[in-house]
Amino acid sequence: MGQSTNSDANIRELIAFRVGRQEFCINIMAVHEIRGWTAATALPRSPHYVRGVINLRGAVLPIVELAARLGLPSNEPSARSVIIVVQIAHQQIGLLVDAVSDILTASDANIQPTPDVSSDLVKTFVMGLLPVDGRMISLISLDHVLPQGEMEAA
């Protein structure tokens, strides 16, 4: 993971993970660490996809259940679920996913454009599609994972 790909801006390393039956990937530079699932403390009046907060070495880390956030059927997290700690702007959050599956190297040329569908979720999160060994992995953007400023109606 240490090899930097800065020399060629078009090549990037991505971390792929599984949510339900789908595979997604994000830029590995945004990932701080990967940890096992621990029970989260529920937050009152939070969006349904925020599972709560956990203690990450003294910092309070909100956990977003990615399946729920992406509108996929959500499962109760198991001992095999994984939290990917990512940095989004100046905040750190944990993404609850089913499993980390792969580390990929991809250039811009590998990434296929997202078909123009009228799904807001797809438009908000999916930046491109990556074919790997006959699988399709969606490259997602993390910018909108947490609700931005907007307060959910209490």
Binding site: T41, P44, V50, L146
Partner: peptide, 26 residues
């Protein structure tokens, strides 16, 4: 511990803390 640092303000909750068992309490 601040909730706002990584999340946002939550109405009814002033802040968070970490309990002896390592879990977060509000």
């Amino acid at each position: 511990k601040s909730l706002e640092a990584n999340y946002r303000a939550v109405p009814g909750i002033a802040a968070a803390t970490v309990m002896g068992d390592g879990r977060v309490a509000l």
